[in-house]
Design a protein around this nucleic acid. Structure first.
Lengths: 216, 216
DNA sequence: ATCTTTTTTGATTATAAAATCAACAAAACT
DNA sequence: AGTTTTGTTGATTTTATAATCAAAAAAGAT
């Protein structure tokens, strides 16, 4: 077990390598999906032997879960931001959430990718993600959308669909950056690209759902 | 080689089983991605032996390509529809394309899934898809968006981003139906769900990109 | 400095899936 | 009918990858 004579501050060697493994694993899992990723590939990218991975994580499944919990922390941060804005209007909170989603999605593109990958496939891994990482936050956003509809400031579509469409639309340009490069020779991941994207999401994507008699 | 004494009309036995294999393969590949799918699994679902698959298709890669060309035909149909509407305004053409995209996406959910899956991963398969299936159509839509922007009817964001956001947003509810079921207990794939979704895409998602001084 | 625990590794095993092949069956052709 | 071509299969080989393990190296404690 973790014996630490000195303070909890400096993470022992073991915890540091485990963290590095998780980081590499999250990147690869999110980009390629569970089965395209190999333990050997992660080991190589992390500069370790394959056996070391199995020392720190029982098996590939455990490593996947552990990597995903890293995303959980990012989402928890978003939720704290929403807590701080609880007095704002539902629409204002949604805008805050979307803006934050963009920021963390560019910083941790793994988030949107994982949602897309596992959200399509269904199955056990999705159920686990829903329970441990995504579900609470998505239901919270859905409740905000419902409140905004009831207040007459959002168009009356199923709030679940609105939330999913907003996220899928916002993540599209980030997730599909490889496709955009291939198809258009256009790389959205630049300073100007990100700025244009933020404006596009807030001033076009989101505003399309705002009722016509409101100001966008 | 294909020796057909009688007319080209009746596809020989070989072509019929090849078609069945392609059909099963497309469904599985799009749902699960390339590596989660096994030749044995396809063979079983098609009621054939694994060796038969290798008789009709050299290897798994060839089978994948062949299955993807099935999607190419669906897209070609969309392009013919656009050809027929060439005199309409760019915005009207985009609306037509979106409506058609929704129809085929609900009918062939493989399309959006494959785009999401390979568009994120990048690599050889994406490059192949871009060249043989997706690229032409996406660049065409992008040109329409650019024209609409120049005409002042769409907000001035990078047209490539607009096209990707529209498609990703529209496909979100379809692709992520499993997630929606897990998270919200909400199944979008019903008659009412599809109707609400079509309206959401055309009257909220797309209209968000229309300039404010235009009528949506 | 010595001992103990933690961490890492090379080599090996186990397993699952792709690919091959020789033989057999069905269809098409004369 | 007999012959050739096309299609199908069970059994086998090959290959890629997850998982294990005994031994070594490094870190930490006394």
């Amino acid at each position: 077990m973790a014996a630490s004579g000195s303070a909890t501050v400096s993470a022992g060697k073991g915890e540091r390598t485990a963290a590095r493994i998780r980081e590499v694993a999250l990147d690869q899992f999110s980009r390629l999906g569970f089965e395209r990723v190999t333990m050997a590939g992660i080991a190589e990218a992390a500069g370790l032997s394959q056996a070391t991975l199995h020392y720190h994580f029982q098996d590939k499944d455990q490593l996947w879960r552990s990597a995903m919990l890293g995303l959980g922390e990012v989402i928890a941060e978003e939720e704290r931001m929403l807590d701080a804005a609880q007095d704002a209007s539902p629409l204002a909170q949604l805008r805050i959430a979307m803006r934050f989603f963009l920021r963390i999605s560019w910083k941790h593109p793994a988030l949107g990718r994982v949602v897309a990958l596992e959200g399509m496939a269904g199955g056990e891994r999705l159920a686990w993600l829903d329970e441990h990482v995504l579900g609470h936050r998505n239901r919270r956003l859905s409740a905000l959308a419902r409140a905004a509809i009831e207040a007459g400031v959002l168009k009356p579509f199923p709030p679940e669909m609105i939330v999913i469409t907003l996220q899928a639309g916002a993540a599209g340009v980030i997730n599909l950056a490889p496709l955009m490069r291939d198809t258009f020779g256009f790389d959205p991941d630049t300073a100007e690209g990100r700025a244009a994207h933020e404006s596009l999401v807030l001033d076009a994507l989101l505003s399309g759902f705002v009722s016509d008699d409101q100001d966008a």
